[in-house]
Amino acid sequence: MLRRPLQQVFRQFVRYESESTMPLVLERSLNRIQLLGRVGQDPVMRQVEGKNPVTIFSLATNEMWRSGDSEVFQGDDITQKTTWHRISVFRPGLRDVAYQYVKKGARIYVEGKIDYGEYMDKNNVRRQATTVIADNIIFLSDNMKEKE
C-alpha cells in the first residue's frame, strides 16, 4: 500500500538512467533566495562582447537585534548589521524594467538564485564574487523622498 506512492515520489526525483553499469541519477535541487531591502545605487547596464547585457545594482538588507540584557527597552540596546548584495538581472524584459525603474533608495523585493563565480581583477588577481541572479522584482515603494 505504501510502496506505490513512494515509487511515484521517487520517479519525480529520478530524471535519467544511463545504460552503463552505474545508473546516473539526477536529483532535483533548489537554489532560491528572497531579499527585501533598499537599493544602494542606481542600476548600470553592462554588456560583454558576445554575451547578453545585464543590469546590475546593489541591495542592502538589515538585521537588528537587542544587545542588552535589560527587561526595560532602551534605544541603545538595538544593534543593526547591514549586508550588501550584488543583484544581476539577465532576463530581457525584467532587465530593461530594472534598468529603467529601479532607483537608489527604492524599497524592493527580489527573488532569484545565488551564483558564486570568479574573475580576474585589473591586477590579474583572482577574486571571488557572490551574485544574486534575479528572476523577479517587486517594487514596494517609490524612491525615498528627499527632505526639503
Rank of each mutant, 00 (worst) to 15 (best):
M144W: 11
G40R: 01
N123P: 11
P43R: 00
S29R: 06
T61R: 03
D96L: 11
Y109L: 11
S141P: 00
D77S: 06
T130F: 04
G68E: 14
V102Y: 00
F13K: 08
E27I: 14
T82D: 04
V97L: 12
R107A: 10
V89S: 00
K113P: 08
K145R: 14
Q34S: 09
F10K: 15
V25R: 12
S70H: 08
A129G: 06
V132P: 00
A106S: 13
K104A: 07
V110M: 02
K122I: 07
S20M: 14
G37A: 04
D42R: 08
E71F: 11
G37E: 02
E111A: 05
Q8I: 11
V39A: 01
N136D: 14
S88F: 14
E27C: 09
R4W: 08
R32I: 04
G68P: 04
D96C: 08
T130H: 05
E146V: 02
V132E: 02
R4E: 13
R91W: 03
R126P: 01
V25F: 12
V125G: 04
E118P: 15
I138M: 05
Q128A: 12
L59F: 02
N62P: 06
V125C: 10
E63T: 13
E71T: 08
K145H: 09
T82R: 13
E27R: 13
R38Q: 10
Q100W: 03
V48Q: 12
L35H: 01
G40L: 02
M120F: 14
G117W: 07
L36G: 03
Y109T: 05
R28P: 00
K103Y: 02
F73L: 13
S18N: 15
G50R: 05
F90T: 02
I114P: 02
R11A: 15
N123W: 12
V97C: 07
E118S: 15
R32N: 09
R3T: 14
T131F: 02
I87S: 00
V125A: 14
M1I: 09
